[in-house]
Write a protein that binds this DNA or RNA. Sequence first.
DNA 1: TTCAATGTAAAACGATCATTTTACATTGTC
DNA 2: GACAATGTAAAATGATCGTTTTACATTGAA
Lengths: 175, 175
Amino acid sequence: MDIKTKLISAAESLFDRHGFTATGMDRLTQAAGMSSRTLYKHAGSKHSLIAKVLSERDKRFLRRLDVSSVDALFKALEDWVRVEGCRGCLFLRAYGETGGDVPEIAEAIAVHKARAWNKIQEIIALETNGRGDEQLAEQILILFEGATATAIYRGADAVATARHCAVRLVKQAPS
Amino acid sequence: MDIKTKLISAAESLFDRHGFTATGMDRLTQAAGMSSRTLYKHAGSKHSLIAKVLSERDKRFLRRLDVSSVDALFKALEDWVRVEGCRGCLFLRAYGETGGDVPEIAEAIAVHKARAWNKIQEIIALETNGRGDEQLAEQILILFEGATATAIYRGADAVATARHCAVRLVKQAPS
DNA sequence: TTCAATGTAAAACGATCATTTTACATTGTC
DNA sequence: GACAATGTAAAATGATCGTTTTACATTGAA
């Protein structure tokens, strides 16, 4: 595996498991199997590493959400949670830990949330024959965020519940 | 104001604004206006202080949720967000930052989530003539968590959207 | 074969971490 | 008027933080 990929994926699991601030560079170098000199050559700084981790996760996550129905959207989230577990939205956690005060991190978060929101709007447009129902899309977004948060302590079943609820909302929408 | 109250309320706002791990004891003593000796006399340790902050927040938050309808429940959350702002559920953030590895913190989180879940079940029972509709209650829980998470980046309007959605779900439920 | 790139290992950097300690001032109470 | 409690101010603790540096090994291309 490419050394940069190895670093970012090791960092992602440590950040997810223990939090961003609580994860020190020592533990990071050890998990990535490289010297701190090499780590800094590739990452630049811890803040920059966090931003890179978030950008990679954004890509990986949205690749999974490449679907065209609300049902499939929540099915994809359910799969993600069952495979990767769930400790909450890593982007919102990064926001909470940094207070939104680190520009490159705040930017990565904003990009991800905008892309997810666009994806949901796109799916809603497909399912309602092109009507741009903002209200419905926001309801689906809230269910999506809610499923992610609730899955932390109630497991993947919460995502299934959100899925049924979301599908019903879409069915009831005027098309 | 009582010195312990002052400490815990200063700690709550710093933790909420900057995160738990990123907030150092120096900043804490300064904000609370007391020496570190006094702080440790009352708090015991940082972990214990975090647990106390969470317990106090649990009390304060659930006092606001002392209502008997789903509509009032989300109205209360909306008020909370408009008054206090929203950086996400402080309990889930504490879970994310500690990885659930600190027993006294994990316990405070579990207590809060159990109490909120019970409150929602109680309201659903009231609104459906005593039928214990677990599925509906979980949907409301997910909307509640989702509103809290979404409000971080979309503001209090997201809570209003969740509110309308929740009310509709309850109306459609068989009673 | 020599140069530049890319890596490791390990020490050093000054800052900050959570926590304890030392020394002292102010209380209210018996 | 002595005592215990409760507070402050500030230094010291040893550990750990993110980051840089020093010294050296390996490699592939010119």
